[in-house]
């Protein structure tokens, strides 16, 4: 479980986050949604420690993230996996080397144990046999899956995904969503996904936090989205005429 309390973040004069309180629950896919510029990415970067909040606290279970000492922070890092929007795969390394990288850096496992773990992870994301390919030799969807495999290779307790569906065709996007959801349930981890993909909201949003102008405008589950009367949320979720018609039909 990750809890944020009164998170504020300013860049110079601009206050991007104006006081966020939310609990990201274990074993669930927690979604942060909102328009571009709403502060989603800043909140995610605060959660993973790439930005420090101007005010407020982030709790990883009972650990205060931004006041931990170096050793405790390093230990916590071992429990965190992240899938980046652009995948952040190392171009000069093969798929297997990319996935093995966190193990090479920190684990005392033998090479054969590491390779076995890498093969397990690649198999979990349906990429058996892609070990020796370079990121430039595989498709965008496959790169995402390699990113997921790398994120879970250290068996994290917390998984963060920044726009996991960006740049993917709808079918591949659904596959990635399902994969993230399955891994979350299987490994009982706390997953936080930053997205503005409506399919993800409807399919895997166990818990949703809708950000608008640096504040939480609405929170609930995917089932509650359809019934919400929040105008801002409705304008955002059902922005396209097709989705508006769909909602009206569902109401009837």
């Amino acid at each position: 479980m990750i809890k944020v309390e009164g998170i504020k973040k300013s860049f110079g004069e601009v206050e991007v986050l104006k006081g966020i309180d939310f609990v990201f629950e274990q074993g669930k896919t927690n979604l942060i949604i909102g328009r571009s510029g709403a502060g989603k990415t800043v909140l995610l970067k605060i959660l993973v420690g790439l930005f420090a909040p101007t005010e407020g606290k982030v709790w990883y279970d009972d650990r205060d993230f931004h006041s931990m000492d170096k050793d405790a922070l390093r230990e916590l890092r071992m429990e965190v996996g992240m899938l980046f929007q652009g995948n952040a795969l190392f171009d000069s390394m093969t798929v297997a080397e990319n996935v093995r990288f966190p193990l090479d850096m920190f684990s005392n496992m033998s090479l054969s144990e590491k390779n076995e773990r890498v093969n397990d992870c690649l198999s979990r994301v349906s990429l058996d046999g892609a070990n020796d390919k370079f990121p430039s030799e595989i498709s965008g969807g496959m790169q995402k899956r390699v990113g997921i495999a790398r994120a879970i290779v250290y068996r994290p307790k917390y998984l963060f995904c920044d726009e996991p569906n960006s740049g993917l065709d709808p079918k591949t996007a659904i596959t990635i969503d399902e994969l993230i959801k399955d891994i979350t349930v299987e490994q009982n981890i706390t997953t936080v996904i930053n997205t503005h993909d409506m399919n993800s909201v409807m399919e895997i949003g166990d818990k949703i936090c809708f950000l608008d102008k640096g504040l939480i405008e609405w929170k609930g589950t995917r089932h509650e989205v359809m019934e919400s009367e929040n105008q801002n949320l409705n304008d955002f979720i059902f922005a396209s005429p097709f989705l508006q018609r769909l909602k009206e039909r569902a109401k009837k």
Partner: peptide, 18 residues
């Protein structure tokens, strides 16, 4: 720019030393 450094930092790698 490709977020490789961010990725390493999240993994706990001391990027300046690596």
């Amino acid at each position: 720019q490709k977020e490789h450094i961010d990725a390493m930092e999240i993994m706990g790698v001391n990027t300046s030393s690596y």
